[in-house]
Simulated scan of single mutants.
Amino acid sequence: MAPIPKPPAEPQDQPDSYLGLAADRAERLARERGWSTVRSLPPGAIITMEYLSGRLNFEVRDGLVTRAWKG
Rank of each mutant, 00 (worst) to 15 (best):
T48K: 15
S53K: 01
L64A: 12
K70Q: 10
S17F: 04
S36N: 09
M49W: 13
R67Q: 14
L52C: 03
A30Y: 09
R55P: 10
R55G: 10
P15Q: 05
L64K: 10
A68N: 02
P42R: 14
P8C: 11
Q12G: 00
Y18G: 07
D24K: 12
L29M: 14
L19I: 15
Y51I: 06
M1H: 06
L41Y: 12
Q14T: 12
E10M: 04
P11K: 07
A68I: 01
P7Y: 08
E50P: 00
A2E: 10
M1C: 05
T66S: 12
T48M: 15
G44F: 13
R33N: 15
Y18P: 13
R67V: 08
D24F: 14
P3T: 00
Y18K: 04
A23W: 15
K6S: 08
R61W: 01
E59W: 02
V38T: 01
R33T: 06
F58L: 06
R61C: 05
G71W: 04
I47G: 05
P5S: 06
M1R: 05
L21M: 14
F58N: 08
L56R: 04
A30I: 13
G63P: 09
L64M: 01
Y51C: 00
R61H: 12
L56P: 07
G54T: 04
E50G: 03
Y51N: 00
L56C: 09
R28G: 12
R33L: 07
N57W: 02
G63M: 08
E27H: 05
G63H: 09
G20E: 02
W69T: 01
S53W: 13
L19S: 14
E27N: 06
R39W: 14
Q14K: 14
A45G: 02
A2P: 14
P43W: 08
S40C: 11
Q14C: 04
L64P: 04
E50F: 12
D16H: 05
S36E: 11
R31W: 10
E27I: 08
A45R: 12
W35L: 09
W35M: 13
E27Q: 13
N57A: 07
S40Q: 15
